[in-house]
Design a protein around this nucleic acid. Structure first.
Lengths: 195, 195
DNA sequence: CTTTGATTTGAACGGGTGTTCAGATAATTC
DNA sequence: GAATTATCTGAACACCCGTTCAAATCAAAG
C-alpha cells in the first residue's frame, strides 16, 4: 500500500512545512521527531525526504523563509518624509508583521541555537539587515535633530526587543485591539528616542 | 569499580546543577541527555538520580531557583523616595542582575515550554510577581503625575522586554561598559514613560 | 579494624531517533 | 490501455533516550 488517492507533491510539500512550523513552535525543534511531522501530514516518515534533504534543512528553510518575507515586506513599504514618520511606520509595521505569524516568529527566535553554524550565519546576517533598517532611521533622526539617542545601534536593539515582546503576551481575545497596542507602543517609542 | 576517591554528595550535587545549567543554556533542554550531564560531572548517568528524581525536576529546580534569587534580590533593595528613583533603581537592578547570570536567564526564558503544566504555573506565577513590582512603580508614578503611560501593565511588559534584550547582544569585551549600558537604557526608559 | 551507610558503577529495560531504500501504488503520458 | 514516472510505504539501520537497580566501592563511626 502506498500513495493514497489524490496525493501530490504540490499538496504534501506545503503541508510538511506547515506541520513542521506548527510542531517546532509548539514543542521545540529538538523535541519534535520526523515521525511526528509525518503523522501530522498523514504520511510515513520516509515520505518527508521527498521534500527536504533532512530535518535541519526543514528548520533552516522555515527560518530563512520568514526572514525573507520580513525583509521583502519591509522593502515594499513607501518611504516616509520625516524620520519621525519613518519610525512610526517601523513601529507599526513590526508589530503587525510579527502579530500575523506568531509561529514563524517564535521559531525564528527560539531555534537559532539548533542551526548549524553555517545556517546560523545566514539567518544572523538577515536579522542584522533588518536591525540596520531601524538603526538607519534613528541615525537620520539624530542628524536631523528630531531624535536624541546616545547610541543608535543599541537604541535599535532596545526598540526591537520591546516591540517583539508584544508577541509574548498579546491575545486576540484580550482587552486591547492591535491598533490600540500599536498606539501605546508608538507613544513609548516616540518618547524614548525624542530629543 | 564505584565511587572514586574524594567524592561526596556536597560536591556532586552542585556540580550536577552547574553542568545541567550550562548544557541546557548551550544546547537546550530537549537536546541535552542525562548521559551528557553525567559525563560533564565525571560520573555515570545513574548517579545523577541521587540528586534529582528526574530530568524535569532538574530543569524546574534551576528555573525556580533563578526566580527565587531574582525576587529575593529585588526585595533586599532599599525603597526609593520617588517613583522616578524607583524606576531608575529597577532599570539598573534588572540589567545588572540579568547580566550576572546569563545562563540562568537564558534557560528561564527559553525552556518554559519544556516544563510540565504544573511546573509552568509555578514559574509563571513568580514571573508575574516580578512584573507586578514594575507595574506598581509605574502606577505610583502615574498617580503622582510623574509618569504618563496609557497602560501600566503593558508598559511594564515593554520595559522588561527592552531591558532583558540586553543579554542577547551585550559582550564583556564589547565597546560599552555595563554602567554605560545602564545609563543608555535608563535614559530611554525614563523618557518612554515620562509625563 | 570492623561495621554501617552513603555513593557510584555498569548493565539492562523498553522505547524512540534520523535516515535509507527496495518495492508497491497511483497519476500521467503516449 | 500500456508504459512511464512521481510518490509513498514499511522495514531496516545503527544509535541514543530516561530511568532502574543489584552489586561494588569508599568514607565515616564505633
Amino acid at each position: 500500500m502506498a500513495r493514497t488517492q489524490g496525493s501530490h507533491s504540490d499538496i504534501t510539500g506545503p503541508r510538511v512545512r506547515e506541520a513542521a512550523l506548527r510542531l517546532f513552535a509548539e514543542n521545540g525543534y529538538a523535541a519534535v521527531s520526523m515521525r511526528q511531522i509525518a503523522g501530522d501530514v498523514g504520511v510515513q516518515a520516509g515520505a518527508l525526504y521527498n521534500y527536504t534533504p533532512d530535518k535541519q534543512s526543514l528548520l533552516f528553510d522555515l527560518m530563512k523563509g520568514h526572514m525573507d518575507d520580513l525583509l521583502r515586506a519591509w522593502a515594499a513599504q513607501s518611504v516616509p518624509e520625516t524620520p519621525q514618520m519613518a519610525l512610526e511606520q517601523f513601529t507599526r509595521f513590526h508589530i503587525r508583521f510579527h502579530h500575523d505569524r506568531p509561529e514563524a516568529v517564535f521559531v525564528s527566535y527560539m531555534e537559532l541555537r539548533n542551526l548549524t553554524p553555517e545556517n546560523f550565519e545566514v539567518i544572523e546576517g538577515l536579522r542584522r539587515k533588518y536591525e540596520d533598517q531601524l538603526e538607519a532611521i534613528l541615525r537620520r533622526g539624530v542628524a536631523a535633530g528630531a531624535f536624541d539617542v546616545a547610541d543608535p545601534k543599541i537604541a535599535a536593539m532596545a526598540v526591537i526587543a520591546m516591540l517583539t515582546g508584544v508577541n509574548t503576551w498579546y491575545r486576540e481575545e484580550g482587552r486591547l485591539s492591535l491598533p490600540e497596542v500599536e498606539q501605546i507602543y508608538w507613544s513609548m517609542v516616540r518618547k524614548a528616542v525624542s530629543a
